[in-house]
């Protein structure tokens, strides 16, 4: 039993050392990004393709922050953005869907990459699934809105007829 505990300790510390060599430089780089507000500046360039999944420039920003910094590290910016209230309910749902599936893409990917898992297989499925799920939410909410609109229009016109 002592042998097992000792072996676990060694394995664990080796794991910590492997990850520390990735995590510490990464945090320094992310801090430099933050201090220079590089993401805010780049958002104008990054945001346009997000219009395809129904996100405006404001709506894309929390998604970009979450993808680079992660949900917990980026939560300050993400929640402030939501609280400012410039996002529609639909955009909140779309960006929330995207962020839940795809976030901390740098940190999470590197953690597994140091164990020997190929980089692309960590990034590709997450990103693609996030795009697909967000698109489904976008189209779905759009359809729902259209359905409600036509329904209320029908009610209005039938009401007029009976009157």
């Amino acid at each position: 039993m002592i042998e097992a505990l000792w072996q676990g300790l060694i394995n664990g510390l080796q794991g910590v050392w492997t990850l520390a060599r990735i995590v510490i430089p990464l945090m320094v780089v992310l801090e430099i990004f933050k201090a220079n507000a590089w993401l805010d500046k780049a958002n104008g360039i990054i945001a346009p393709p997000f219009r395809k999944i129904g996100l405006s420039q404001e709506g894309a920003f929390p998604v970009v922050v979450a993808t680079v910094f992660g949900l917990t590290f980026g939560s300050g910016v993400i929640l402030a953005n939501i609280r400012e209230g410039r996002l529609s309910q639909q955009e909140i749902r779309i960006s929330g869907t995207f962020m839940a599936i795809c976030h901390a893409l740098i940190e999470d990917t590197l953690l597994f990459a140091v164990l020997g898992v190929p980089l692309w297989i960590l990034v590709f499925p997450r990103f693609v699934l996030a795009v697909v799920a967000s698109y489904v939410v976008y189209r779905g909410t759009e359809l729902f809105r259209f359905w409600r609109q036509t329904k209320s229009e029908k009610q209005r016109s039938s009401g007029r007829l009976s009157a």
């Binding site: 039993m1 097992a4 505990l5 072996q7 676990g8 300790l9 394995n11 664990g12 510390l13 794991g15 910590v16 990850l19």
Partner: peptide, 10 residues
């Protein structure tokens, strides 16, 4: 990580 690895080894 360290406690998890130890629990698994035990």
């Amino acid at each position: 990580i360290v406690p998890t690895a130890m629990v698994i080894k035990v």
